[in-house]
Nucleic acid binder design. Structure first.
Lengths: 201, 201
DNA sequence: GGATGCGGAATGAACGTTCATTCCGGCCGG
DNA sequence: CCGGCCGGAATGAACGTTCATTCCGCATCC
């Protein structure tokens, strides 16, 4: 920002520098105050740019929130799916999936809250909505495979996924609010064992 | 609403009539679009009253959302706590608590979503925040009692509660979004058995 | 090598719109 | 008739967005 002397000594103007600053500021504010509760000039101030500069990088506030949503959805999708050990045992598969989701929530808590808060919001466009399916479909396939081997209960896969993901969100939000007497990592690790008991046969 | 001729022929003006209409309209709109995303004149139109009339019943938009929050928090608190069979077995206690929460979510799905969405929002006042503790503290006591009898795992009670409540929210939201191949009641009933497995010793 | 001027990025004051809130003329029950 | 309640037009503040202007690094020229 303006009080950073380095900016004056070394311009260090990499391209995308400000774009990243805007996305970062928008993530924090949208996660905390919601889309309608966040004024564009406020995002600009937090990003350390002028209000007009926002519109050099994003054509509108809606375009900004969509870009942000897609960016983090893409990160969480890659985190969950990249080189997943498909051939592992169901129990190990669940542990690995949980571990990856926990790692994302721990590394990027604001992004996790943001994605959860803006899920299916009316100002997200088709492309952003479609991004959801890209994670959910492979996950559903894992559940069905685990059910076929008899390791997981025969409830509807969507129900089990809603239950598991809901539990993760509940624990992360409680940790974020400071309601838990243990660290987020510790809480998520303990919850993993509990939730596996919920879905295993 | 405005196109109901009965309103003109028979005033049928019970006291609190319009107040209830306003609260009902606000519930639907706040649950769907959020606080900042909902314009006051829109609430008035949906309630079938003039924009100015809103301010005869609530001094401000903030006062309206606080009244709404407190009303439904009070309803869910009464639903959960009233004449609870304290002396029952832990398994039956859990079943009854789950049944009551499910009944509330089924009877008032918009209120359930609204309460969840506005939990700890910055425009809620101290009184509204304090209402939360009135449900959570007795529930925590139940968990601790069940842990003492050895029926429930010895994880932090807050963690178990976050996990259970998160799972309920996850299932309700999935049902609300039409993502489940079974009805909300059916989904919640199946999930009850699953979640008990998660927390029982 | 230093001065000059150019081009695009950045800026923030200003614009039209939308919002929460106020105000007032009319309407309805007594 | 009259008094209170009501509706919706009016109001000012705040919003998203635009645009005339400034700023800055670099190439060019003397």
């Amino acid at each position: 920002m303006a009080n950073d002397p380095a900016l004056h000594r070394q311009p260090a103007r990499e391209p995308g520098d400000k774009r990243a600053a805007i996305l970062d500021a928008a993530l924090a504010l949208f996660a905390e105050r919601g889309f309608h509760g966040t004024a564009v000039p406020l995002v600009a101030a937090r990003a350390g740019v002028g209000a007009g500069t926002m519109y050099r990088y994003f054509p509108s506030k809606e375009a900004l929130v969509n870009a942000l949503y897609r960016h983090w959805k893409q990160v969480i999708t890659a985190t969950m799916l990249e080189s997943f050990p498909l051939d592992a045992e169901p129990r190990a598969l669940f542990a690995e999936g949980w571990r990856r989701l926990s790692a994302f929530a721990t590394a990027h808590p604001r992004a996790f809250v943001f994605l959860e808060l803006h899920h299916h919001a009316p100002y997200l466009d088709e492309e952003s909505r479609a991004a959801d399916a890209r994670v959910l479909l492979p996950l559903r396939a894992f559940v069905e495979q685990a059910q076929r081997t008899g390791a997981v209960r025969d409830d509807p896969p969507e129900l089990l996924m809603a239950l598991v993901f809901g539990a993760v969100v509940g624990v992360v939000r409680a940790a974020e609010a400071g309601h838990l007497p243990v660290s987020r990592e510790d809480a998520l690790a303990r919850a993993e064992a509990r939730v596996w008991e919920a879905i295993r046969r």
